[in-house]
Amino acid sequence: MKTKLKGISYSKYGYLFSIPFIVAFLIFTLYPTIYTATLGFTDCKGVNGPENYHFLDKPFENFKSILENDTFRISLKNTILIWIMNFIPQISIALLLTAWFTSHSNEIRGKGFFKVVFYMPNIITAATVAILFHTLFNYPIGPVNDFLESTGLRESPYYFFTSKTACRIIVAFIQFWTWYGNTMIVLISGVLGISPDIYEAAEIDGANGVQTFFRITIPNLKTVLLYTLITSLVGGLNMFDIPFLFLNGGPDRATTTTSVFIYNQAFAGSYLYNKAAAASMIMWVIIALCSAVLFFVMRDKDQIKLEKEIKRAKKEAKLASKGGVNQWQW
């Protein structure tokens, strides 16, 4: 409408400038997604898989066998377990640090330095981090065992890599260690977005630091917290680098995440592309549901409100004009 009034229509440039994105999206995202979904219904496997495959007579056989697959179930359980073990301390410590770093009454010095240091593990290559921790927890000689022995906490070195629980805790710890700084920075920026007037009012009313945090900061941070929760969940459902390189999913599948499971099905000797595709699509649905929730929460509420107002105003104007006419007729 607007452009027409000016005489020349520029709207075609909108399409023109979006072409690269759309083409790349169609080729590298949409087509592989559909292709993966299709492969889930076929018998595509083996080294010659890519060329010859046929649709199965019972279309949902792969999905059924994946859902009944013991390793898949274990890997899904592991993924969620490791994610929870990492997320609870992560969000707690991030919230605590956020409360301290944004406190008005007790200014902490060196915030900038702490932020830089806490965020650092996040930027380091996860592959390197996984191998580094593998080396640190090595048996019988590794820095951690050396520490445990020389401080007298243990008499003999502990073989971390044979204990399922220890390995899950280590993987969860690495995840926590790499992500808490990131979460903290996101939360701090969320707090800085809260109007300072509210804090001033609370201070005048005599609220202390703890009260301010629980009554003002947390309720106002709801959206940011939910955003953190879901992005972390989606990231956690894709956890690959660390469990894969730390012990290749071991010991006894204790750190096999769904991504590691999919990788092993398709690329580690067995070439079961159809099964891997079915497992991928199951994960795709779970992740899509999560991001749908996020999409719903993060949508621009003010914009929607504004649009509703405009619509209502238009309707009213119409009604009024009609009413006007009617009145005349009356």
Partner: peptide, 15 residues
């Protein structure tokens, strides 16, 4: 925005 490339990797690889 949120759908990671990893979950479509099988189709991507075959392609």
């Amino acid at each position: 925005l949120m759908i990671p490339a990893q979950v479509t990797s099988i189709g991507f690889y075959q392609f």
